[in-house]
């Protein structure tokens, strides 16, 4: 029990402060001839909130997200071809890049066929958030003036995206509701893994580079065709861009789509 005792003078002072505070808050409230704004809180009113759309993660949403990633890959390969990013030693990759682009279009069509069969709306464009968070920053680094490794970095970006796509299909296996859909997902996922191997061998060729190895200078894992015994679901590291004075490039970390990057029913192209 507190033994706080207030004198009459102190009580009157506190009352005065309380009244002044209430007047000040009321002044922030509704006023005549002033348009009311729901963005400004005022005494005695609660601003209305905008409810988020109902978002259920179901088979259709998972497949729409997979389709969106296919379009991310298609757009990236299209950019590599149209912007002439594959130069020098990498110019000979154009045929492979066209094949990969066409494979991804086939995958997107196949996934959208499944989506429609399940009663969903097909998704025929790239995942906006994946584009904004991963691909655009990577493209800016690749195309920055003075980057001596633009072609190699383009291949590295493609390799990272193929790994993310493979992981996405593998990851949704645990969430899809039927065995048939899981098998359909992995029919495509294994194609992405094969793409990744071809690109890994371009970046780090030879038998000795197939399994996991570590760069002794940086301590980081080298690009490997078969980096682990089991397909992983972790983040994918992408090291690209103009080297710093110390020879260090920028390291980006890519991850498979999460709740804030799924192609929900209410998301449209």
């Amino acid at each position: 029990m507190s033994d706080l005792h207030l004198s009459r003078r102190q009580l009157l002072r506190i009352s005065g402060i309380s009244i002044a505070g209430t007047i000040a808050l009321a002044a922030c409230g509704k006023q005549a001839d002033v348009e009311e704004s729901s963005n400004i809180a005022s005494a005695g009113t609660v601003p209305p909130t905008t409810a988020l759309p109902s978002a259920e993660v179901n088979d259709i949403v998972l497949l729409r997200t997979a389709a969106s990633l296919e379009y991310n890959a298609i757009d990236t390969y299209e950019l590599a071809l149209s912007a002439g990013l594959l130069t020098g030693d990498y110019a000979g990759l154009a045929d492979a890049v066209k094949r990969f682009r066409d494979d991804h279009q086939e995958h997107a069509d196949a996934v959208n066929t499944l989506i429609v069969a399940l009663g969903g709306k097909p998704f025929t464009c790239a995942n906006t958030r994946i584009n904004e968070v991963y691909i655009q920053p990577a493209v800016e680094l690749i195309t920055a003036e003075g980057n001596p490794d633009a072609a190699m970095d383009t291949v590295a970006l493609a390799h990272a995206l193929e790994n993310i796509a493979a992981q996405t299909y593998q990851g949704v296996v645990g969430m899809l509701s039927t065995p048939a859909l899981r098998a359909d997902a992995m029919r495509i996922g294994q194609d992405e893994a094969r793409h990744a191997v071809v690109l890994a061998q371009v970046l780090n060729p030879g038998y000795a580079s197939v399994g996991p190895t570590v760069n002794e200078a940086t301590g980081r894992p080298n690009i490997a065709s078969v980096p682990s015994a089991f397909g992983g679901l972790g983040s994918v590291s992408l090291t690209i861009g103009t080297p710093s004075a110390e020879g260090q490039k920028t390291n980006l970390i890519l991850e498979t789509p999460s709740l804030n990057s799924l192609a929900y029913d209410y998301v449209s192209c």
Binding site: Q170, M186, D191, A193, R194, Q201
Partner: peptide, 17 residues
């Protein structure tokens, strides 16, 4: 699923080297 993806990689490695 985690096995399929790596067996596909094995096969691709043989096709690459």
């Amino acid at each position: 699923a985690s096995i399929i993806t790596v067996e596909a990689r094995h096969a691709a490695a043989f096709g690459t080297l």
